[in-house]
Design a protein around this nucleic acid. Structure first.
Length: 819
RNA sequence: GCCGGGGUGGUGGAAUGGCAGACACGAGAGACUCAAAAUCUCUAGUCGCUCACGCGGCGUGCGGGUUCAAGUCCCGCCCCCGGCACCA
């Protein structure tokens, strides 16, 4: 046979699949479905190795389940809105839409050269008005449901991007995309009330047994549910305020430490400071502290080990449980956004409060006695026996926690409550390249949503991209000027666009009915395809995207669009692709271009290597040597064709050898099927196919075994097809296999053929390997013992020793304990 | 600090509590070749003993434990990676 010409083979089969629509899903019906989804890419311009890995993993699963006879949905689309397109517009005077479409077209071609089995008929880009129209539709539905609100608040502002960032995107005080410092700015913003679903987003984890523990743990921390109490403290100051009853409310998870409060503290932004400004004797110094805190970024405030703060002199707070007057401080370790922005400080039992108390020479009151510890040396945060706590003395602190929470309520000091870290989703963006928020400002009617029949609100073309100042949409007069949807009076459109996480929060649902012009999707189709059976993507999306999507899906359920609670049954988070141990990046200059690899070795080799080099979940370090190894293996499979079809080298009938080949063939079917379906251990699936191929090379009876070796080869090709589909299609065709391998089914193994009459098992003496014996399944312990004792080598090892214990694990191992 | 994941040959990595190191990379030796590439065959955890066939010791980050048997389970520690973080 000719040499392995991957270029012509790969393009031949890519054309065949496209012409025959091999990978288009069947209509919804009775057939069992499998929805395989990879996280949709941002069209940055070029495919990178992380993409290749992501899509190769997805393709193996899609091709496997398709071969197993399921109706597979394996779509691809583009997360096409976002800032890089707008930056390109500013820098290169190219329209964001043009830039995006160019990138996307190029990446689509790259994907096609990899031979991933997508149903391209369902492709869409989120910047298509046919798609973002439905973002607007959902937004209005959520507005009607009371899930959309406007709030004026301090928001993260990135001067370089000239836009607002969600808290999650301003992680660590730097912009998540441009990495510049984030500053604070007050703006009126649109929010989606994801917190209404906080409890359900947490409790829903119970049903997500197909998700990695790691991701569930990260989400749990992100949602951050904690039980505690809100306690009200009266303020005492001279002169008394006009109303005389100003209160300070704190949230605490530790009501059991209420008797240990020795001071109170509020965040520098807390409104109480302004209310009490005439009572605070050192107000000018306090004001200085506040302005210095305001200059610090969240990162600086959090990184500092130095517990800074200042006492609000002349102002005291009264502890309701014992009537004690304690001083009030403002300190920047108190965050405005969490709880009530004020704390009751219990230095004896909270390490941060302890550090603050030590620094500012404050009292440390022990209320929980632990063993062998001294709260003047360090805070004690564990459980113990209550002391200095009035009627609760002597109780275990755990019991006291429950009792005192109730007591706080019955005494009227406050109420039991639950607190979440999760914040509402800020969706407003002052950018052009996103979904216009479909709201109108009318002088008479106020804020009015656009009528559903008038959607989409389309992005205008007459926009200038300067990269500075106000939102670009404000520069389009034709966009801004409109009529009120309610009264028809001249009005102004909202010029904010939506966060791009909106686009990726429901795209998986749109794939089930991508061309629907009447609705976002048809519920029947959605209910057939959902939930996604396998979702694959990077761990970096554990909190944001995967929480937003779960939230959005629950809203769709409440809109009666879907009957399912959760969108993704199984989640696989693939590891990074690195070179020399570092993430591939342009700035580091350690990238490997998928194009070059495909050009030099072919798509099958690239796919095989990236799946073989490491388990999907783990980091993968790129290796050219390893890649060449995969290329050699593919060539070995190619050359095997001639060996299988050649004249036999040795025609002596050797039933045992043939039987052994049959056994390894069926063993391999079992192992590969299990590795793909259950373990997703694609690397070991490939190793066992390699072993089968090695066995075929070692086998001498090709052609003289009644077709056993030919069948073994065919099986190997079927097992390898999800990994290296072009090669296997070609060889399958040359072998005269039925149909094409992508639709030829999956081989079935016969357990009876895997079983052997006898098996060699190890014999250990006192836990050390001393020899091997041949036993059969039916052998009793007694028989096995006899076999062992008649083995020459073992006889010698056992001579002169007394057998204390004889353990035989059937067909596995013998261990003898001797004295 | 908290949460999560991990630590196995020169390298990537295999091992339902049951033969540690499958499969591959790299390496060495040989065959083929004028030669090289490609290919094929063989060797290999490590240390020691032996001319050799072999034999023995030690081996999955460290220290204990459970068990006939531990990379795997339990307890304590060290280190690495990822995430979160003055979260009250």
């Amino acid at each position: 046979m000719s040499d392995y010409n991957f270029k012509s083979i790969e393009s031949k089969w890519q054309k065949f699949w496209a012409d025959n629509k091999t990978f288009e899903s069947e209509a919804c019906g009775e057939k069992e479905k499998y929805y395989c989804l990879v996280m949709l890419p941002y069209p940055s311009g070029n495919l990178h190795m992380g993409h290749v890995r992501n899509y190769s993993i997805g393709d193996v699963l899609a091709r496997f389940w398709r071969a197993k006879g399921k109706n597979v949905l394996h779509p691809m689309g583009w997360d096409a809105f976002g800032m890089p397109a707008e930056n390109a517009a500013i820098q290169h005077k190219i329209h964001p839409g043009v830039w995006t479409k160019q990138n996307l077209a190029r990446m689509r071609e790259q994907l096609k050269t990899l031979g991933i089995s997508y149903d391209w008929s369902r492709e869409f880009a989120t910047c298509d008005p046919e798609y973002y129209k439905w973002n607007q539709w959902f937004f209005i539905k959520m507005y009607e449901m009371g899930l959309v609100t406007r709030k004026s608040s301090n928001v993260n502002w990135c001067n370089s991007c000239a836009t607002v960032l969600a808290n999650e995107q301003a992680d660590g005080g730097i912009c998540w995309r441009c990495k510049n410092e984030v500053v604070q700015k007050e703006l009126e913003q649109w929010f989606i009330k994801i917190t209404d679903y906080a409890d359900e987003l947490l409790s829903g984890h119970q049903s997500l047994s197909g998700w990695p523990e790691q991701v569930l743990a990260m989400q749990k921390n992100w949602i951050g549910k904690s039980y505690g109490a809100e306690v009200e403290f009266a303020i005492a100051a001279e002169p008394l305020q006009a109303d005389g009853n100003e209160k300070l409310t704190v949230f605490t998870t530790r009501p059991d430490t209420l008797f240990g409060v020795s001071f109170m503290a509020v965040s520098p932004e807390h409104e109480i400071i302004q209310k009490l400004r005439y009572q605070i004797k050192n107000y000018s110094e306090v004001e200085k502290y506040i302005s210095s805190a305001a200059k610090k970024t969240a990162l600086e405030r959090s990184a500092s080990k130095d517990k800074s703060g200042i006492m609000l002199e002349g102002v005291f707070v009264i502890n309701p449980v014992n009537g004690q007057k304690v001083p009030l401080f403002t300190a920047d370790y108190i965050l405005k956004g969490y709880g009530t922005g004020a704390i009751m400080a219990v230095p004896a039992h909270d390490s941060r409060d302890w550090e603050f108390a030590k620094k500012h020479n404050l009292e440390i009151v022990e209320v929980i006695k632990g063993e062998n510890l001294d709260v003047s040396k360090e805070a004690y945060e564990g459980e113990g026996v209550m002391v200095n706590s009035g009627e609760f003395n002597g109780l275990n602190s755990k019991d006291a926690l429950a009792k005192m929470s109730d007591w706080v309520e019955t005494e009227g000091f406050g109420k039991k409550t639950v607190n979440f870290k999760l914040k509402d989703w800020l969706v407003s963006r002052q950018r052009y390249w996103g979904t216009p928020i479909p709201m109108v400002y009318c002088d008479k009617c106020g804020i009015v949503p656009v009528n559903l029949k008038d959607l989409p609100v389309v992005l205008p073309q007459d926009v200038e991209f300067t990269g500075s100042g106000e939102s670009p949409l404000k520069t389009s007069k034709s966009f801004v000027d409109t009529e009120c949807p309610k009264c028809g009076a001249p009005s102004r459109r909202e010029t904010d666009t939506m966060d791009t996480f909106v686009d990726s929060s429901w795209y998986f649902a749109r794939y089930t009915d991508p061309h629907n012009n009447e609705l976002p999707l048809d519920s029947q189709k959605l209910n057939y395809w959902m939930p996604v059976d396998q979702y694959i993507g990077g761990i970096e999306h554990a909190c944001m995207h995967l929480i937003y999507s779960r939230f959005w899906h629950k809203v769709m359920r409440d809109l009666k669009m879907t009957k399912y609670d959760e969108p993704f049954t199984n989640l696989l988070t693939q590891g990074m692709v690195t070179l020399g141990g570092y993430a591939m990046s342009k700035s580091r200059g350690n990238t490997v271009s998928p194009d070059e690899i495909v050009e030099k070795y072919g798509a099958d080799t690239a796919r095989l290597f990236i799946l073989f080099a490491a388990p999907p979940q783990k980091q993968l370090d790129w290796s050219t040597e390893g890649l060449e190894g995969s290329f050699r293996f593919i060539n070995r499979v190619w050359r095997l064709f001639d060996i299988i079809n050649a004249e036999p080298k040795d025609t002596k009938a050797q039933a045992d050898e043939t039987k052994a080949l049959l056994r390894i063939t069926h063993q391999t079917i079992k192992k590969v099927s299990r590795d793909i379906a259950e373990e997703k251990q694609l690397n070991t699936a490939i190793s066992s196919i390699m072993e089968l191929v090695n066995a075929l090379y070692a086998y001498k009876l090709h052609g003289a075994d009644g077709g056993v070796s030919k069948q073994a080869y065919k099986t190997a090709l079927q097992l390898l097809a999800p990994f290296a589909p072009h090669l296997c299609e070609e060889l399958w065709q040359r072998l005269g296999g039925q149909g094409n391998i992508s639709t030829a089914g999956w081989p079935v193994y016969d357990e009876a053929l895997i079983k052997t009459d006898s098996v060699g098992i190890p014999v250990q003496i006192n836990g050390k390997l001393k020899g091997k014996i041949l036993v059969s399944d039916a052998d009793t312990d007694e028989t096995v013992k006899n076999i062992m004792e008649s083995d020459e080598k073992l006889k010698a090892a056992l001579s002169g020793k007394q057998i204390v214990k004889f353990i035989y694990v059937k067909s596995k191992i013998v261990n003898v304990v001797v004295k």
